[in-house]
């Protein structure tokens, strides 16, 4: 404002002086063509630059904005910084990726420049995904184990089958085969019969817990498909079971 008034004052003096020259020149006989007098230059258009360093930050970190300008009387950075001097720097710490704009205004007009600061947020926690049928199966469907020569559902098997039953009731379209298995000590033929009784006992128990019989088929493999090949009770116990296989 001060500068501008001074400038206009100087322009006024210049005009006065020019007028005097013209008047005194009239005293000479020779009348020269009126000399073209250079018009005063128009006020310069402002220039401005803006840089961000670094241009990429993690959330919580900061970046430095630096700027430079000419011929500007007013400078302002948006968003969030406001009026600034003709040059300078400041730290910003945006929470999201932001493009900063500096606007320089002067008698010659205005100019602007931008600088982008991108904020890379840590990967958002995955949206809580529905577990797949296979994942639920692996978690909830549990085999039932048996005592030697028995097809009775033991207490531990009741617990396992309660979880299994919840799965089948929640997924009535899923079908399964219950395989009856036995350890190696009995004969092939006896174990085929015993395995059939074990598979049937597992199915019957699940049905008593509300599972649809149509979801379950049974097959006896006797001792033909052991899970464990050692000779001894730990292994035999592994092999005395009702085992669930998806599909039928």
């Amino acid at each position: 404002m001060n500068l501008a008034s001074r400038l206009s004052h100087r322009a006024g003096l210049l005009a006065l002086f020019s007028a005097f020259l013209i008047v005194s020149g009239c005293h000479k006989k020779v009348t020269a063509p009126p000399k073209q007098v250079e018009a005063p230059p128009p006020p310069a258009r402002p220039t401005v630059t803006l840089q961000a360093n670094p241009t990429t930050i993690n959330k919580g970190e900061s970046s430095t904005l630096s700027w430079n300008s000419t011929d500007a009387t007013q400078l302002s950075i948006d968003p969030g910084v406001g009026a600034v001097n003709a040059q300078g720097s400041t730290k910003v710490s945006p929470t999201d990726s932001t493009t900063y704009t500096i606007t320089a205004t002067g008698p010659g007009g205005s100019a602007s420049a931008t600088a982008a600061v991108s904020v890379s947020a840590p990967a958002p926690p995955p949206a809580v995904k529905e577990p797949s049928i296979d994942e639920l199966w692996a978690r909830e469907v549990q085999d039932a184990y048996f005592d030697t020569d028995k097809a009775d559902i033991r207490a531990d098997a009741r617990q396992a089958l309660a979880s299994t039953a919840e799965f089948f009731k929640a997924h009535p379209s899923v079908k399964a085969t219950i395989e009856g298995h036995c350890d190696e000590r009995g004969s092939t033929e006896y174990n085929l019969g015993l395995g059939d009784r074990r598979a049937a006992a597992v199915k019957q128990y699940l049905v008593s817990l509300g599972v649809s019989a149509g979801q379950l088929t049974t097959v006896s493999f006797g001792k033909e498909k052991p899970f464990c090949m050692e000779h001894g009770e730990p292994c035999w116990q592994q092999n005395r079971r009702g085992h669930f296989v998806k599909g039928n």
Binding site: D149, G186, S187, E189, Y190, L192, G193, L194, D196, R197
Partner: peptide, 27 residues
Amino acid sequence: SGANMSPTWNPKTGQTIAFVSDRGGTP
């Protein structure tokens, strides 16, 4: 009440069948 398997006819008479059952708890 148990499993019954491994039947075999008396080959001479055809009148008697031997088989295995675990109706008593063991085969």
